[in-house]
Amino acid sequence: MAFALLSILIAAIPVTYCYPAAFQDLKGSSRNRTSIKFLAVGDWGGVPYPPYVTAVQKTTAKEMSKVAEQMGADFILALGDNFYFKGVNSVDSPRFQETFETVYTAKSLRVPWYILAGNHDHLGNVQAQIDYTQKSDRWKFPSYYYELNFHIPNTGKTLTIIMLDTVMLCGNSDDYKDEQPRGPLRAVDANRQLTWLQDRLARSKADFLLVAGHYPVWSVSEHGPTECLLQRLHPLLLKHNVTAYLCGHDHNLQYLEESGVGYVVSGAGNFLDADVRHWNHVPKGSLKFFTGQASTLGGFVHAEVEKDKMTVTFFQAKGTSLYRTVLSQRNGH
C-alpha cells in the first residue's frame, strides 16, 4: 500500500516544472563593468502562415538589435505568446526558424533568450518549446517556471528574475469573451507553482527582485487587470518587496507603479493595440505611461540594473525612446 502510494506521488511530480537556482554567467564580463542590461519583449510570435512574421515584428526586431548594440544587452526576456496563434506542435516545428531564428539575426541579439509561455503557446505543445532549448544555442526555456540569479559585476549586488507560467497558474483566457482566465487546467500544478513561488520569494536576498509572467497584474488595455493574479500574486509582490513585475498579453507598452512595485507591460513585439477600456480599473494615479499607437511600429523595453538602481526605458520600433523610469533596490538590502 505504501509503495503504491509512493508510486502515485512520484508519478504526479512533473519532470520539467521547476528549475534549480544557480547563478548564471554573463558572457564578456569585463573588469570595469558594473551593471546588467537586458531587453524585454512580449507577444512577438509572428503568424502561422507565410511569411510567418508581421511588419511590426520585423521593425521591432531591427530596433531591438540597434538598442542592444548601442546600449548593451546581456540577455532577452521573452514574455510569452512566442508563436501565434496556437504555439508549436513539436520541437521540429519550422516555426522556430521562421518566427525566431531568421528574424532576430543580428549579432547583438545572439545572447540568451529566457523564455516563458503565453496563452497562445498553451494552445500548442509547451513542452516542445522547452525541448527546443536543447537544439538552440540561445533559446533558454528549462521548465514551465524557473528562477534566474545574476551577480551584478563588480558591485557585490545581485539580481534575481523569477519566470512564471501564469497560464498554468490561472488558466487559459483565449476562448472567453471578457478574456479573463477561468481557473487552471490542473489545480495541482497551479498550487505547486504557487507554493514554489512563495518559497523562492521568501528566501530571496537579492538586491533587485523581478517577477515575470505573461498575464498582467495591472493593465488599462483590452485584457485589463488579471483577477486571478490580483488574488494570488499581487499580495506576494507587495509582501516580499518585489522590485518590478514584467508581462505582455496586452499588445502595447505600459508602465504603472503601485505601493513601490513597478509594473511593466511590454507586449508590442508583433501587434499593436491602443485600446484603453480598463483605464479606470487600475489604482488611481498608478498609470505613468501608455502607448499602443500603430505609428510606433512596435516596441520593447531596455533595462539596466546597477549597484543601487534599475533604469527601465521604453522604446518604439521607429527609433526613439518614449519613457524612462528609475526603480530603487529593495529595502533592507
Rank of each mutant, 00 (worst) to 15 (best):
Y132G: 03
N125I: 10
R186E: 15
D178P: 01
H120E: 13
A190D: 01
Q134F: 12
G183I: 05
G156C: 12
D165V: 09
S136Q: 07
Q193I: 10
K177P: 11
P153S: 10
N154I: 05
T133W: 09
S136I: 06
Q134L: 12
Y145M: 09
L159W: 04
A128W: 06
I152H: 04
D121G: 07
R186W: 13
D137T: 14
Y132N: 02
I161T: 07
M168P: 00
W139M: 08
N154A: 13
D165Y: 02
D121Y: 05
L185A: 15
D165P: 11
P181D: 03
T133A: 12
P181Y: 01
F150G: 02
N125V: 09
D189R: 15
M163R: 00
N125D: 14
L185N: 14
L164E: 02
V167R: 03
Y144Q: 11
N191W: 11
P142M: 07
Q129D: 03
Q127T: 11
T166R: 04
D175Y: 14
V126H: 02
R182K: 14
K135H: 14
L148M: 07
K177M: 11
M163E: 05
G171H: 00
Y145A: 11
T160Q: 14
D137L: 10
K140R: 14
R182L: 10
Q129R: 05
T166P: 07
Y132D: 06
K135P: 07
D178H: 03
Q180P: 02
Y144D: 11
L169M: 15
N154V: 07
N149C: 12
Q134S: 15
V167Y: 00
A117P: 09
M163W: 01
D121L: 05
Q134N: 13
N149D: 14
D178V: 03
